[in-house]
């Protein structure tokens, strides 16, 4: 095979591609340090928008709600996904294996607006009032398939030999799971949890539908800010979110790399 690097214009084309991907984010980060009130007029370096963002009570509340919902939904969705994957991949004499898998993954194929309307109607029928509870239940539901996919992939890629060896060496089913299965699929479980967390943090449509006093998530709050016109505070918030994502992604990469090196 010809080395891809030898194609003419490969370098400039690659540069163009990454520019296209990251320039908008770069602009946001750049202007978050702008002193001027007008978003697109540079007058000098300043951290004052970070100050005002961090001092904004409503904003901080939204961050707190988003983090709470995402954390709880991640734990719940990952647990359900893990159990589903164990049964679907490892279970003996499972009927409708393919069908079960499709049913678990179906929410990925449905437009989110359909799901959002559906939960809105369901919750009002049930008379559920608690805003946080509604958010957590809805987020858990749509996060499950995202958590499921990496766990299933990891489990399918693992020979059943290790688990058989554990049982052969007198381990009960629970010990087998705790000491062999789980440690070996942990990278998949971690990846699934990360994905679920990001999907929950990022969700707008469902969260907006379920929005009520005291349950405004960060994306919904930001959207509200934009409707009042853009402020440089938005740039600062966005930059902080990018920073948070980078830290999360780096941790994930390091953990995955370590577990691969060990295996």
């Amino acid at each position: 095979m010809t080395d891809v690097k030898r194609y003419p214009f490969a370098r400039s084309f690659t540069a163009l591609f990454f520019l296209y991907l990251y320039l908008p984010i770069g602009v946001v980060i750049f202007f978050s340090f702008n002193e001027n009130r007008l978003v697109s007029v540079w007058t000098g370096f300043s951290l004052k928008w970070y100050d005002s963002a961090l001092a904004n009570r409503a904003l901080m509340d939204a961050v707190k709600i988003s983090l709470t919902v995402a954390s709880i939904a991640t734990v719940l969705a990952t647990s359900v996904a893990l159990m589903a994957a164990l049964v679907i991949v490892r279970g003996r004499d499972v009927k409708f294996r393919r069908l079960s898998e499709t049913v678990v993954n179906l929410p990925l194929l449905l437009p989110e607006i359909v799901l959002a309307v559906a939960v809105l109607i369901l919750f009002s029928q049930l008379g559920l009032q608690n805003g946080m509870a509604k958010l957590i239940i809805a987020h858990t539901a749509f996060c499950i398939p995202f958590a499921f996919l990496p766990i299933r992939a990891r489990l399918q890629g693992m020979e059943p030999d290790f688990e058989e060896a554990a049982q052969d060496l007198y381990a009960t089913p629970w010990t087998t799971f705790r000491r062999v299965t789980f440690p070996l699929i942990a990278p998949g479980v971690f990846a699934g949890a990360m994905l679920a967390f990001v999907i929950s943090m990022d969700d707008f449509i469902t969260s907006n539908m379920l929005n009520s006093g005291g349950s405004t998530t960060l994306p919904v709050y930001i959207f509200g800010l934009i409707k009042q016109g853009t402020t440089p505070e938005l740039n600062a918030i966005s930059t902080l979110i990018v920073l948070g994502s980078l830290i999360l992604a780096t941790t994930a990469l390091i953990l995955t790399f370590r577990s691969e090196k060990r295996a």
């Binding site: 030999d161 290790f162 058989e164 554990a166 049982q167 052969d168 007198y170 087998t176 060990r262």
Partner: peptide, 28 residues
């Protein structure tokens, strides 16, 4: 299987990759 007093040497060996050799032997 875990209640049968027989042990198996697997074709793939199936040594637990996340444990040291000591831990592997001590597992049973």
């Amino acid at each position: 299987p875990h209640k049968r007093r027989v042990n198996t040497v697997f074709q793939s060996y199936a040594l637990f990759p996340h444990m040291t050799l000591e831990q592997n032997i001590s597992f049973g």
